[in-house]
Design a binder for these strands. Sequence first.
DNA 1: GTACACCTTCCGATTATGGGAGAGTCAAGG
DNA 2: CCTTGACTCTCCCATAATCGGAAGGTGTAC
Lengths: 285, 285
Amino acid sequence: MFRIGEFSTFTRVSVKMLRHYDEIGLLKAGFVDPATSYRYYTADQLPRLNQIIALKDLGISLEQIGELLRTELAPTELRGMLKLRKLELEGHIQREQQRLALLEARLSMLEQPVEGQGYAVVQRSLAPLLVASVRQHVPEVGQPITNLFEELESLVSTHQARAASSPLTLFHNPGYREEELEVEVAVPLKTVIPASARIAVYELPAVPQAACVVYTGSYAHSTTALNALLRWVEANRCHVAGPLREVYLRFGADDPDSLRLPPAFLTNDSEQFVTELQLPVQPHT
Amino acid sequence: MFRIGEFSTFTRVSVKMLRHYDEIGLLKAGFVDPATSYRYYTADQLPRLNQIIALKDLGISLEQIGELLRTELAPTELRGMLKLRKLELEGHIQREQQRLALLEARLSMLEQPVEGQGYAVVQRSLAPLLVASVRQHVPEVGQPITNLFEELESLVSTHQARAASSPLTLFHNPGYREEELEVEVAVPLKTVIPASARIAVYELPAVPQAACVVYTGSYAHSTTALNALLRWVEANRCHVAGPLREVYLRFGADDPDSLRLPPAFLTNDSEQFVTELQLPVQPHT
DNA sequence: GTACACCTTCCGATTATGGGAGAGTCAAGG
DNA sequence: CCTTGACTCTCCCATAATCGGAAGGTGTAC
């Protein structure tokens, strides 16, 4: 039987935390003196505590750990989780690196004078466009969207209905933009093809007036371009009248004629990409 | 001028957060209607917000970001921070992997029956030992300790005072073990050498009774060994009477005779290491 | 002119963790 | 046997960044 302080020094878990684990039932003290309420721990409890801190280091919340330990998890299960977590961690690292790239773009933005960032914003109208599209909530722009494009393109190609213009993404104002991002990825069609539950086939409405800007380079630069767009909108005293569209004019540098490659977001070697942002606007108020 | 919701959708910062940033003065709304308290944002504020989220993604707290932006940071400075952060991130990744290794050890512990974990705990006495030592708070076991050993060994070798026994670490109960770990790393001496402010030279007291266990392999296994030790202490109804000692009997597999290599913690290829844990105990109560 | 989307403030919750107050307990030494 | 000092108890509060919700006011489009 060890007192809480001793147990704390050997397990390197703070007294506060041991008490906390006791409270939430994650690791109850082995014995509690009914007279003094002193907690006493036994060596038998060490394995469980070790499990707990191992799982905690895996990034699992205490609540989930409690559930896991309640089910007396088989070692193989743990192994599996370990592997899974390892993968997850690697993916995490990758995403971190992407973030760094994006961030680099954001920072480089600051190095130039804020005003003339060299983005030529033009106002024009957008023609209606027959498309096949998937609309979906995604946690963030990137891989998921590329996957959606792959799905769409493969479907459309089986019907040989692909029109020779660029694929695009529409960013729908998702409620008040808490939580997730609602995107609609769309590829142009020359003929109507059967829709499905997931995939809609319809005509994107014409837009009488849109502020448009073309940017080159990876997705990381889109922030800057959007910035220019909004600045234009403000300067011209219009207001936004529809979801932002992002049109992938050129992507896949080696194969500029192929429209069938989905855009590769956030890759490093994407400096040759050409993208247009289109923002529907209405003049005046 | 954009209303908060619109600004939110385009910057992908939630309305709640925009209001929060306004409150704490990180990004004040460009204009607040005095009658309605409506917040209005301008395109001019986009760069600043982009800075904020860039820095936030760097892992910097909002408070610090505020300070940074107040000083109108030079771009080169930002570059530097970026590089720094990148390094930091890589280090972080490395540590994560170490943690995974340690964790693997913890988990594998579970795969064996909890009882006989094959650790032979013996009780014996420890002789007094003249040492040079550094006592210091460290955030975690690992690199810092290795460095301390290097420092000690190099000092001792200039005096040619090294005794031919193993270096060790003492883990002092650091208060109640909140915050940091207080370790004392020590190398044995055959003669007294001058002490300094950092480095103490004295005789470690003899310990009449200590529970000892030898384990092989990397530091990751020490948890298990300590576990066995505490179990023994409990079973033999003694209690702990001093700081835990960790004696590095063999380390640096290629050069078993060299006592001058500091132990390499948490490395992968350390399966040949031999370490003894010694825990001073007192019988009975 | 009414509905509906949007905005406001205020209050509370989250998760893992620690600080501190005020009071009780244990063990060792006088 | 009593004091002392280290230890423990419970309770309350705080953090940082973020969200949820309630109650009430605003703007605008049909």
